[in-house]
Amino acid sequence: MPITCKRDLFDLPTGLTYFNTASQSPCLMASFSAGERGLMRKRQPWIAERAALPAEMERCRELFGGLLGATADDVAIVFSTSYGIASAAANLTLAPGQDVLVLEAQFPSNVYAWQRLAERSGGGIRYVPRGADFDWTGAVLEALDDGVGIVALPNCHWCDGALVDLEPIATECVRRGIPLVVDATQSLGVKPLNLETVPADFIVASGYKWLLCPDMMGFMYVSPKHQSGMPLELNHASRIDAPSMETGSGLGGRLKPNARRFDMGAADSMIHMPMCVSALEQITEWTPEAIHGYLVKLVDVIAEKAEERGFTCPPIARRIGHFIGLYRDEAWPKDLAARLAAHGVYVAFRNGALRISPYLFNDAADVDRLFVALDAELR
Rank of each mutant, 00 (worst) to 15 (best):
F79T: 15
P54Y: 10
S228G: 14
A259K: 13
T137I: 09
D183W: 01
L92D: 01
G15Q: 07
L336R: 05
T17I: 09
Y18G: 01
G149F: 07
S23A: 10
C313H: 12
P358T: 02
A152V: 08
A90Y: 08
A376N: 10
C5A: 07
G265E: 11
G124P: 06
G177D: 02
A89S: 12
V222C: 13
D263E: 04
K334H: 04
G97S: 05
A306R: 09
M230G: 00
N155F: 06
L166Y: 02
I169Y: 08
A205Q: 01
G84I: 14
G123T: 12
A267C: 13
L374Y: 03
L255I: 15
E104Y: 14
H322R: 13
S109L: 06
L193Q: 06
A88G: 06
P54F: 11
G253N: 09
A373N: 06
G124I: 07
E62C: 13
W136K: 03
E56N: 07
L9Y: 05
E56C: 04
E62Q: 15
L212H: 12
R59H: 02
N362E: 01
W136M: 10
G138Y: 09
F349S: 08
G325H: 10
L39W: 07
A338E: 12
A373T: 11
G38R: 14
S228Q: 15
T17C: 11
